[in-house]
């Protein structure tokens, strides 16, 4: 327990955990609304409005988790923030332009003259695609140690495709829960069609990570940790199997279990994220910079931590309130 006596040791750990939590929440929450954006071209005009309505009250707050995650990286590990973001300069720019496009299209498609609506729908899809691909690409580059070589870029392009398909899958699972009728049946089809993205994405990263870094190989395949780490792959496989089985039976009578695919994919994201966190800890820049080397001064971290401990539960509470107020099937979005 010596660790807790020295803030230089436990503060970076706490902030790494907070940042990890923010990234995970972001990937799940913005994952589903980016995914819904990706499904836009597959739906007809009427359905497009319902797709947008299903994420309307949430997307703004969902994206705020990205700001918090990047903010925590910025404030807790400033050196790593600089190293990671300069290495990922181009994909970051692509992601930002994507996020700008989709965020504003959301408003413009409902407010600009009706003749412009198809263009804003197109911009909404394009923005979602750019952001998803860029995030998948950055994930791949991060796993590969942030070095720009041809094989690394090729791998990152693969993870970009997988994450994008994975997002479309969680987006479809969200729609299963939030829609009904013909659109819900369509959403079940989209979710089935997206499962391969989750499967290949998780497989690619799980296989690549240990072979890129002997350190990570040792962490996973040494004995006895192999035993107590076994639940990660076993549970992931079970969840994928469950999704495959369940989606073939959806939608069910009385709309029962409409939330289960979304819940299962959330669990899958959490497991994959947990696995990656285990692999890379204690490094924030893979195999180059640990969280302890990159951390800010303890007095600065402390003042953020105090605020966070008060504010984070409040944020979670009012986020929950918003999900409760807008629970149930998505209806038309209106200001009155």
């Amino acid at each position: 327990m010596d660790m807790f006596n020295d803030p230089n040791l436990w503060l970076p750990w706490v902030f790494a955990a907070l940042m990890g939590l923010s990234i995970l929440i972001y990937v799940i929450l913005d994952g589903f609304d980016l995914g819904v954006g990706l499904l836009m071209p597959l739906s007809d005009d009427d359905e497009k409005d319902r797709l947008v309505a299903s994420i309307g009250p949430f997307w703004d707050a969902n994206e705020t988790w990205l700001v918090l995650a990047i903010g925590l990286l910025l404030v807790a590990f400033p050196v790593a923030h600089g190293v990671i973001l300069t290495a990922l300069y181009l994909p970051v720019a692509v992601m930002l332009i994507g996020l700008i496009l989709r965020g504003v299209s959301f408003e413009f498609r409902a407010k600009a003259p009706i003749g412009q609506k198809p263009y804003w729908n197109g911009a909404f899809f394009t923005g979602s695609l750019m952001a998803s691909m860029a995030q998948g690409f950055m994930l791949g580059m991060y796993v590969m140690g942030l070095t720009w070589t041809l094989p690394h870029v090729a791998f990152a392009l693969l993870t970009a495709v997988f994450l994008t398909v994975g997002y479309s899958c969680i987006g479809a699972a969200w729609l299963i829960a939030k829609t009904e009728g013909a659109l819900q049946i369509k959403a079940v089809g989209w979710a089935k069609g997206g499962l391969w993205g989750l499967l290949l994405g998780i497989a690619a990263i799980s296989l690549a990570t240990p072979f890129i870094s002997p350190r990570i190989f040792e962490k996973w395949f040494g004995f006895p940790q192999l035993l107590y780490l076994a639940p990660f792959p076993v549970l992931s496989a079970a969840l994928l199997g469950f999704l495959w089985w369940k989606l073939r039976r959806m939608p069910m009578v009385d709309d029962r279990h409409a939330w289960t695919p979304f819940a299962a994919i959330m669990a899958l994201f959490a497991l994959s994220f947990g696995g990656m966190a285990y692999s890379f800890y204690p490094y924030v820049v893979p195999d180059k910079l640990t969280i302890y080397e990159a951390a800010s001064a303890p007095e600065s971290l402390m003042i953020i931590l105090i605020g966070t401990l008060f504010v984070l539960p409040t944020i979670l509470a009012y986020t929950a309130l918003s999900y409760i107020i807008f629970r149930g099937k998505a209806t038309e979005l209106r200001y009155d």
Partner: peptide
Amino acid sequence: GPLLAYEVLTAFFLEAVFLGIMLFGAS
């Protein structure tokens, strides 16, 4: 860092979450 963190924590989330209720929650 802390100043930016406090902005996100005390302001950004507050606006973003309650904006949904303000815009679409009236009924």
